[in-house]
């Protein structure tokens, strides 16, 4: 058997609907035979009548409704058609769900799925990575699974968490990643994973960029460098301890993320290492992000807008040469 990242998401939702009557899925074009723009819910509406519901094109109201249902004891999953459109729902996610526990002592267990990240030809409004933006605000957990196994277990974990979870699933990984089977056990939420041990440089990353980093690590091995790759898995909370322990071993840090460069996850990683592990560093830490422009449509532009194997390798060599 082989399972794709997308199938893992669908399977997690199937199980959630089967095992927990509090779960329902709310989103655009997710019901009927259609099963969602990316087919993440294909077949589920038929299998679970009344629990996979199409909504009007109303991102704000979709999340607002999910909040209300969560307050009434349900565990709604909201599917955004693209992460980019969740900007319309920022108010409900951050000002309503994200403040609710602090204000009232009543948590809001919603999961918002964001099909994230760039794919060829998707342009400025169907390519965004919004994890940094969501993480900036209090009151939410932000997940960025990079593997089929994590896509599966973390979605199940997300629904079990009593607080709002932003689950960033990478569109490029949907079909490109495959695993032999789905895992029985999950790695703890909030823990980063060392996906490749090394001794010369730590690359801290998450989501699709984990695979770019692994490719760079393989490439540089030919030159005798052993790169350690840390997959953050959740960017909020950020597992600072695992990152610091890795930098303690390698003395060098490169943070890589697909989101825009100002602030964000990579800046946070570097800030934490610089403030809490300055003495561990043998070279200045560095980071690579997308460029500070909207995400371009044409593949020639797009492939250079985002971090890629080439740009990561160049930066890695620079740090290693210091």
């Amino acid at each position: 058997m082989s399972v794709t990242y997308l199938e893992a998401i669908r399977e997690a939702q199937t199980q959630l609907l089967r095992d927990d009557e509090r779960v329902f899925i709310y989103g655009q074009d997710i019901a009927g035979k259609f099963g969602g723009a990316f087919k993440a819910t294909k077949g589920l509406a038929e299998k679970f009548p009344g629990r996979v519901l199409n909504t009007p094109i109303s991102e704000d109201a979709m999340v607002g409704t999910a909040i209300g249902a969560a307050l009434e004891g349900m565990r709604p999953i909201v599917e955004m058609q693209f992460a980019d459109f969740s900007s319309i729902a920022l108010n409900q996610i951050l000002n309503n769900a994200g403040t609710h526990f602090f204000r009232t002592n009543v948590p809001v267990p919603i999961t918002v799925r964001l099909p994230s990240g760039g794919t060829k030809g998707s342009g400025p409004f169907h390519s965004q990575s919004m994890e940094g933006l969501y993480s900036h605000y209090p009151g939410v957990v932000v997940m960025t699974p990079a593997t089929v196994e994590d896509a599966y277990t973390m979605l199940i974990d997300a629904v079990a968490i009593d607080d709002p979870v932003i689950y960033c699933e990478h569109k490029y990984l949907y079909y490109h990643l495959k695993a032999d089977a789905l895992p029985k056990e999950s790695f703890p939420v909030g823990k980063a994973r060392i996906v490749r041990p090394g001794r010369d440089l730590t690359i801290v990353t998450y989501s699709a960029m984990v695979h770019e980093a692994l490719a760079v690590a393989n490439e540089l091995r030919n030159d005798g460098f052993e790169i350690e790759v840390v997959d953050l898995r959740t960017v909020k909370p950020l597992d600072t301890a695992t990152v610091l322990a890795s930098v303690a071993r390698t003395g060098r840090l490169l943070a890589v993320g697909e989101a825009f460069p100002w602030g964000g996850v990579t800046a946070e990683v570097i800030a934490r290492v610089a403030t809490e592990g300055f003495h561990l560093l043998d070279a200045a830490p560095a980071r690579i992000n997308a460029k500070d422009t909207p995400i371009p449509y044409h593949p020639n532009l797009w492939s250079e807008h985002r971090p890629n194997r080439k740009s990561i390798a160049v930066k890695a060599r620079q740090i290693l040469a210091e």
Binding site: F24, G50, S58, D60, A61, M62, V63, G64, T65, A66, I67, G68, A69, A70, L71, E72, G73, M74, P76, N91, Q92, N95, N96
Partner: peptide, 15 residues
């Protein structure tokens, strides 16, 4: 912002 929250409360009660 509270209108859809109310809608969700009522939907959940119905469910």
């Amino acid at each position: 912002a509270m209108i859809p929250v109310m809608v969700g409360k009522l939907m959940a009660k119905r469910m």
